[in-house]
């Protein structure tokens, strides 16, 4: 498939996420994106259909779009969490076109099957997420899965509760902070700086950390 379609499908996916998939919006958006296929091209290639005023994916189009978005957002996570880069957009835009399915799934596993990109948008699940085999050790895991006494850096915290996030951040738990797991049961106990915190498992599972490379 040509990049020409990739870019267009990606744009439409994002418009769909925001429920802004009216024909006018899509058209305007595709015109703005340089080198993207036009609405007509997409129709011809059977990637989309028009339903009243809305643009919708066909089965084929949706699958392609999902894969592109998945590659893009996983690439972002890889660049941000593992390589520690702050500017990830440009690189991710290139990587989304070249990653094979196997490479994508392996990155996904390495990152511990993340559900959101660094910008907080959702990453479509792949086959590896649905039946995690864990043949490859994940580099990014949730804090409760560290070994007792192991230190790791927080990669990201993924939680639906703003209040919880506020609490954690005000204790100094934020991406980049080093934490050490003390125990898992009856509550997860971690330490950051000299502060010991007891957390419920369900909260601990929202804190994703990057393991230090084994010596």
């Amino acid at each position: 498939m040509k990049h020409y379609y990739d870019e267009a499908l990606e744009e439409i996916w994002m418009l769909l996420e925001r429920e802004e998939n009216t024909i006018d919006r899509v058209q305007a958006c595709l015109e703005r994106t340089g080198g993207a296929a036009s609405l007509q091209d997409l129709l011809t290639a059977k990637y989309i259909t028009l339903d009243k005023e809305k643009v919708r994916f066909t089965g084929l189009g949706e699958e392609h779009a999902r894969n592109i978005i998945r590659r893009h957002r996983l690439a972002e996570r890889l660049l941000a969490d593992v390589l520690g880069m702050t500017e990830v957009e440009g690189q991710a835009c290139k990587m989304e076109h070249i990653l094979s399915e196997e490479a994508t799934d392996r990155i996904c596993t390495l990152l511990g099957h993340p559900q959101e990109c660094p910008h907080g948008l959702s990453i479509p699940a792949g086959s590896c997420c649905r039946q995690p085999k864990e043949t490859l050790d994940s580099l990014i895991i949730t804090v409760d899965r560290l070994r007792i006494g192991e230190e790791a850096r927080i990669a990201y915290i993924q939680t639906g509760s703003d209040e919880r996030l506020h609490k954690l951040v005000s204790f100094g738990l934020h991406p980049g902070a080093v934490i050490r797991l003390h125990q898992r049961f009856p509550a997860v106990v971690i330490r950051t700086e000299e502060t010991q915190l007891a957390l419920e498992e369900e909260i601990a599972r929202e804190i994703h950390v990057r393991r230090k490379a084994e010596a």
Binding site: S161, E163, R164, K167, L168, F171, A187, V189, T195, Q196, L197, A198, L199, E200, I203
Partner: peptide
């Protein structure tokens, strides 16, 4: 409420 408890020394 969430259980996030600081453990003082």
């Amino acid at each position: 409420a969430d259980f996030i408890q600081e453990l003082s020394p």
